[in-house]
Design a binder for these strands. Structure first.
Lengths: 121, 121, 121, 121
DNA sequence: GTGGTCTAGACCACG
DNA sequence: GTGGTCTAGACCACC
């Protein structure tokens, strides 16, 4: 399900968060569905449990999941979380657009790039 | 001219590189124009000279400037450097575009975002 | 494994980079194999960790290795890195060949030299 | 006649030495012909006289020119100097040949490279 | 004066 | 423990 790219310069917990966020968004993990336990996922990915814990904590703080002591962690997909996520990506997108404009790339070329863009993992 | 944001999580030398890259690209620093010396800029920004050195050294390795021991550092703006820069930004842009698409943002909305995008520093 | 020649005018980090590049190329360090840690190598060679860091950082920028904070540095051997390396050496080789030709050395003599050339460290 | 490339990472005096060595070797400066004075050349190239002096001193130490106090510097082209020069280039050439061999470049490819090599400045 | 290398020692985030 | 950043201060070659 989830795979980690050790060559990716981003920290592992960040890769994890992104993967999980996406799985929740796309419905791969349904609302209120139980996520694998910290230990379970740690064993499966051969990763330090602390790292998994960090990812779960972050996601909970941002409203993507909720944890129940003794029961586990569950998908939440708060509207607020989704809104913030979209806003964040939009901001980065705008920033890059102006960057490209400054680099002499035309609006038409950008639209072409959008068209080309396929879903990546 | 140049300012450092200490709240920015990115390392100082990276902020510097980006600023300088942009100044060269936009012509704020003309080709073959001398950049401030390592020590001079270090004093002005109240930053350790090694940090400036790191930025200059990186920019030289990427073809944005060239340095002559005993004389100073000068803007180069290699075509190769520009090309690589554009390519890098385009890649990020495409990635975000597909990300947005996945988040349910329509192509029209993206084009609107491009239109809005203004130059930021 | 690795030794530094202090009489060599080239900077230490450059000697290091060359040695490591060769070890990766020849398979002395296999792909994805862990390199000695910055501190470990620094201790072994009685060199400042920053110098090792510089070498590793350069090699990463050039695609020879990848580093994961908290885990270590690993051999990558990107095709792009190898190609660039070969191209660089070929260029120097051509330059020297024309130099020799100008010095009155015949093509036959050069071919003899190639035949003689043995691997050096 | 002589031009300096400020982008060349090699020190200026070294570029100068190479140019002069070649001019003497190719006969562009005949044996016992007077070289431009230090001040003269310094003015012409807009370079610090110390730098010219350094080049002349080096060349004299290596037997390429001889200086007569109050009269000037003159081309010498000692056999010893030429021999040493050829030997030095041959050594570098052999080293690169073995390097290329290690990189998987065939002898045939190297011979092709030799054939291609044209005189460069 | 310039760029460049190196050491020493500190601090941080990640695992 | 790991890599990575930053500071402080020294030394060198070049101009």
């Amino acid at each position: 399900m989830i795979s980690i790219d050790y060559r990716d310069p981003r920290p592992i917990y960040e890769q994890l968060e992104k993967k999980l966020r996406r799985m929740i968004l796309t419905g791969a993990i349904a609302a209120n569905e139980k996520l694998p336990s910290v230990r379970e996922l740690a064993g499966e990915l051969a990763i330090n449990p602390n790292t998994i814990q960090r990812a779960y904590s972050d996601l909970e703080a941002q409203g993507w999941i909720y944890s129940v002591a003794g029961k586990g962690s569950f998908a939440a997909m708060t509207e607020q979380a989704i809104f913030r996520e979209i806003q964040k990506v939009k901001d980065s997108f705008s920033a890059l657009a102006s960057e490209l404009s400054l680099l002499g790339v035309s609006k038409e070329e950008m639209i072409r790039l959008i068209g080309e863009a396929e879903n990546r993992d």
